[in-house]
């Protein structure tokens, strides 16, 4: 199963290159599974486990400050990202083409003082944060990219 997914994603990568599709420098959320490797470099992290689930795989990359999990569909698209650790990852890198949309949505979301949870809904992307010092958590996902049958409860 692992092998098959790797072949599929490599195939998509080659196809994208052949078609001259320009990849975002940090294309990740919404990008191809190839961008997991880009993220790993951007976060100075090492890639750990790949977990195969029904309908998707989870690729985990780990650095001193944070664990990042990228949720990849069978088509090789990163449809969600989750993280936890001492410090959250640099979202401007992980959100790729959704970063600007998130920034705008964040500015339009009033702060809820005292509530250790933040829910920001952009036009296409949803970014949530929660937790406390020593274990700051969050997730970002694009609802239309989430494969049918995958529960949001599994993205954590």
């Amino acid at each position: 199963m692992k092998v098959k997914v790797c072949v599929v994603s490599a195939g998509l990568g080659l196809m994208a290159a052949a078609l001259g599709v320009v990849q975002q420098a940090w294309a990740t959320l919404g990008g191809s599974a190839d961008s997991v490797a880009t993220d790993r470099k951007a976060l100075s992290a090492v890639q750990r486990a790949t977990t195969v689930k029904p309908g998707y795989t989870v690729q985990e990359i780990i650095s001193d400050a944070t664990h990042v999990r990228e949720y990849v569909s069978l088509e090789g698209i990163v449809f969600a990202i989750a993280w936890n650790g001492f410090m959250p990852p640099d979202l401007t890198k992980l959100l790729g083409s959704y970063a600007a949309e998130y920034q705008q949505a964040l500015q339009n979301t009033p702060r809820q003082t005292g509530v250790r949870h933040q829910h920001v809904q952009g036009k296409r992307v949803i970014v949530e944060k929660w937790g406390h010092m020593r274990n700051l958590q969050g997730r970002a996902y694009v609802p239309v990219l989430v494969p049918s049958g995958v529960s949001l409860d599994d993205i954590k």
Binding site: M87, T113, M133
Partner: peptide, 30 residues
């Protein structure tokens, strides 16, 4: 922003500061 929403003043945060007295001695910032 957008990585976080920085607190810039007591008025904005609703307090003058934070006294963190959880079960560890050290914080986990960068």
């Amino acid at each position: 922003s957008p990585n976080s929403r920085p607190d810039t003043s007591p008025f904005e945060a609703n307090y003058n500061g934070i006294l963190g007295v959880g079960p560890f001695a050290q914080d986990s910032g960068q």
